[in-house]
Design a protein around this nucleic acid. Structure first.
Lengths: 290, 290
DNA sequence: AATCTTGCCGTAGAAAAACTAAGGCTAAGA
DNA sequence: TCTTAGCCTTAGTTTTTCTACGGCAAGATT
């Protein structure tokens, strides 16, 4: 009999959150990204939880984890619980007198598309502070405290989505390279690549029926906007996503190298949380972007 | 624009749990007890949450806290969310090959009533490890990971409760004091008190119509079982709860000083979680105690 | 076959969070 | 007026959590 009557403790909350994320993604790396920590942290949380429960929750394979039978049985409960918590957290945030309006989007969209539109919206809502967070993968709006997300992707049923633009690509370059292109075609120009859209050149050359020497060769950039800047400076041609480069084409700082726009099958999609979790301004802001 | 794209963080989980507890009890002290920490810890959590939200959640008064308008609006969401989490946590625990069977009860019951009954049950379930946690206030079975609770209290509707015994009290003392009692009545004997049942002597004297010089005077003990031991050793008379002292009376180590049993209006109550959260053995164990 | 790449693990040390302890304040009630 | 109950604050300690980095194994690539 212990002298200090310590109640039996439940499992650590943060470990449960880590499990929730890891289970939804079936990946420690993806969970780590969502929670903004390193995969090692997730690994430790899961291990702690497994120790507490006395049962393995994941089967570790070399190229990824997989939920065990036991683990899979828990996912539903945990997802439901943390969904509920997210609702509560959002309610808490919305109490604040003037919470930031949080927008999640791709780095490229944040840099090339959003500023122009956001300026208009800021003017309409001068009292609201709009924050933009750039990320590679769309967040779950039912989980994370974003009020609006803009990403490229296929339209999905059942969520609050608006298609802003079809995603189409066409090669563009600086006007100074135009002459060289007229002479040698694509062979005379370096192809610039963005790492997250590494297949753009291949996709376009196949769909447009334009043969290219090597669709993978050429300088690679970690950010699309960097590649665009380089292209404007004359470093080569980039596969332009029309919605991202149209302003440069209009102003003449980039010129088209083809009349053919190829659809990527995706679209520029605006997504907002489900109704119950929207802020009063959300709908209005979405309409101004659409 | 920050270079490291840090996602906006939600409120700290532990702070939300502290809020949940504090809001349910409308008391930091009670919340602290439930979570097994000091009130200071709760205070800090709440302050952190208020800072995060930018809104006060509690109004601090000298003799207790009170939820603000804002705070009250959140309670429902948080209670629901943490209820869900408790369900998930229980599911997690029940995965374990052989989890302890957790029993919550008053210290006095744990020491004076439970051992006899538990012995029987341990014999019937030799493979199960029964853990007993003593506490002053019944836990919420939908929140904490107990499988069974035994407390004195009024029967309530709608929960899974079984009345084990009516709670009745009657004064008892060691046989050696009997003679003195015959001569001088209660005036010749010290009255022993347990701090959690400080009014027992008053209650009995009024209900039984027996006048006592001072129902509050006499040695006080923090544990009822300590007072019982002192009484057995001849230190004075104690107000015996029949279900707790009957064995000593039967064996002769304590003797009754009155024929009058006074009902406290309470009962010895066994409570188990709602069906969906019970373990397979729960019902059976409860029946063996009843 | 050799080499990359991906995604996990483990450990050590560093950083951050959570907790306790102790002293103080205020209002209610004796 | 004194006591009690209940909260607060602060400082310091303990515990938890995170990162950094080396390693390993299975597919993929050359």
């Amino acid at each position: 009999m212990s002298v200090t009557p310590r109640r039996p403790k439940g499992p650590p909350l943060n470990a449960m959150r880590a499990f929730d994320a890891a289970a939804r993604h079936e990946s420690f790396v993806a969970a780590a990204e969502e929670l903004n920590v390193t995969p090692g942290a997730i690994s430790q949380h899961i291990k702690a939880l497994e120790a507490w429960a006395g049962t393995p929750l994941f089967q570790r394979n070399a190229q990824g984890v997989q939920l065990t039978q036991s683990g899979r049985a828990l996912v539903g409960d945990f997802v439901a619980a943390f969904d509920g918590l997210a609702v509560a957290a959002r309610a808490l945030r919305n109490l604040s007198p003037n919470p930031d309006f949080q927008i999640a989007t791709l780095p490229s969209i944040a840099q090339l598309w959003l500023p122009k539109h956001l300026a208009r919206i800021r003017a309409a809502f001068p009292e609201i502070n709009f924050s933009v967070t750039a990320m590679e993968t769309p967040p779950s709006l039912s989980r994370e405290l974003f009020d609006l997300a803009i990403f490229f992707g296929p339209l999905e049923e059942g969520s609050e989505q608006i298609c802003l633009r079809k995603d189409e690509i066409t090669p563009v370059c600086a006007p100074v390279l135009r002459e060289r292109f007229e002479k040698d075609g694509f062979d005379g120009i370096a192809l610039l690549h963005d790492q997250t859209w590494a297949n753009d050149w291949t996709l376009w050359s196949e769909a447009a029926g334009v043969a290219l020497a090597d669709t993978q060769a050429g300088p690679k950039f970690s950010l699309y906007s960097l590649a665009v800047e380089e292209a404007k400076a004359g470093a080569g041609a980039i596969m332009g996503h029309t919605c991202l480069v149209e302003d440069f084409v209009a102003s003449g700082s980039l010129v088209r190298l083809s009349d053919v726009d190829v659809s990527t099958g995706k679209a520029l999609i605006l997504e907002i949380p489900e109704k119950a979790q929207q802020r009063t301004e959300t709908k209005h802001v979405a309409e101004m972007l659409g």
